[in-house]
Amino acid sequence: MLGEMSSIAFIILYGVSYGLVLALIAIGLVVTMGLMRVTNLAHGAFAAIGGYLSTGLMVKGGMPFPLAVLAASLVVALFSIAVERAFYVYLYTAPELEQVLLTIGLDFIAIGALTFFYGPNVYPTPLPFYLAANVDLGIQSIQLYRLAVVAVSLLIIAALWYMFDRTTLGAQIRAAVDNRTMAQSTGINVSRLFSLVFALGSGLAALGGALGAPMLPLEPLYPFKYLILVLIVVALSGFGNVKSVVGVALLVGIVETAGRLLFPSLSGFMIYLLLIVLMIWRRDGLFVTRRAQ
């Protein structure tokens, strides 16, 4: 009985921390895809760059982990504005195939650059001693780092929820997601909003990459390795639906963790099984309330 309790506790704790990191990375993509209608396959590259940057700041610059994560996210957010102005502006009106081709090209550039600067191997992220320790929660012991990930992610998600739901900026973003032309005609500077949202999305990806690096190790192929997982979260969340991302990512994290713990040999398929079932059952997104046609 204690064994089962501890298994359930493990699935919840580890599934939630894993799912929340996915949520951080995926939120950005859901926002950019929903708002800008760009199939942005280069999203994982921003997460990778964030991770490499923060680890570099820690290892080479001696910066403490929390500060390095924050600095890397900000730098990537600023950098992404340049990328958006240079490449993405041309994609807003381009057909989807061209969007896919260009953004996947950006992935290859990122992979090449990361290999060139950091080598083809894993780039190890040291965990500060105060996060490496285990704490015993009675039924299950968990690494402090995982708890920190949960806390930080929840904080950021709460802030995002507040921004989307309670601020003018959030209202503008939601308006632009729903109807771009209409939003523009009410005087919202959609082009500036796009840059801002793109920076926000990329910054969040970088945050996920940096914060999650001790869990999802950095390697040059990172942009592709986690793209599928993130796309699954995006597909199940529905277009531009920020609130459901968290729910879906948690579900994905818990299903993956439970799969590995309970059906280890089948765990590679569990996530796809979930995807198939949910895509048939709820094609528009898991938590989307269906609109009247």
Binding site: S7, Y14, M215, L229, T257, R260, P264, S265
Partner: peptide, 20 residues
């Protein structure tokens, strides 16, 4: 005995299985 899919990214559940 566990055969772990090569696509696995978070290995914590396997460590947990071993410990159990």
């Amino acid at each position: 005995q566990d055969r772990i899919p090569l696509s696995t990214v978070d290995y914590a559940p396997y460590a947990e299985r071993i410990a159990n």
